[in-house]
Amino acid sequence: MCTLLCRSGGKMLALVAGGVIVAAALAGTLTGRAFADDKPTQAKPAETKPAAEKPKDEKKDEKKEEKKAESSGLTTGDTYANFTLKDTAGNDVQLSTLVDGNTIVVLEWFNPDCPFVVKHHKNNTTFKDLFEKYKDKGVKFVAINSGAKGEQGHGLERNQRAVTDYSIGYPVLIDESGTVGKTYGAKRTPEMFIIAKDGTIAYHGAIDDNRSADTLGKVNYVSKALDEMLKGETVSTNKTPAYGCSVKYKKD
């Protein structure tokens, strides 16, 4: 099962957003976890706009690093990566404005036509229930569709319809280039990341413990983690194997 942290190989972890490497590629024995010391502050969120320039010292071995970055990603213990994407209403959503020191943010990788997403958004009300339960407790939700043009579940119109049909009460962001998805290393729909108030990823993995396309699990890992976080406790199950469809990234 893909475990994204390890994919950084302990040698380098390059975060690519908007086609630009925004975090240093690190040599030596640094693991992804070490990024906890490198939190983006509210004052200076990591910029992801394509206009940002790559620092000169990273241009060495650029090709190799980008290849590596494609297969790496973020997981529990890492610091979140900032991004700005448009939602289905055309509004810009910048993640760093949500991670404001007082808010927990839940990221959900989304494809309205993936049977596993349908399981939780249409055949059951898993996500609606989660949103309703936590929306007034300092928790914000964001769904991201990293499907490329022409792929299943892609397109503004399809996702606008999904927001209505599934009664989604939070923004669905369109990441057609797959840049944000690849930065996080999201590989499945649904795949969940919970970002704690301090910007570290507190949970990464599945929505629940039943990997089928029709039956709900006994434990909703996101709900369990949020309950623990809101009580100030350590998240007891902080990483699980996500299950679902593959994210329909643009084919190379």
């Binding site: 893909c2 475990t3 942290l5 390890c6 994919r7 190989g9 297969s71 194997p241």
Partner: peptide, 8 residues
């Protein structure tokens, strides 16, 4: 038991 980075 699960393995890290089966891709790599």
């Amino acid at each position: 038991l699960p393995f890290a980075d089966l891709l790599g």
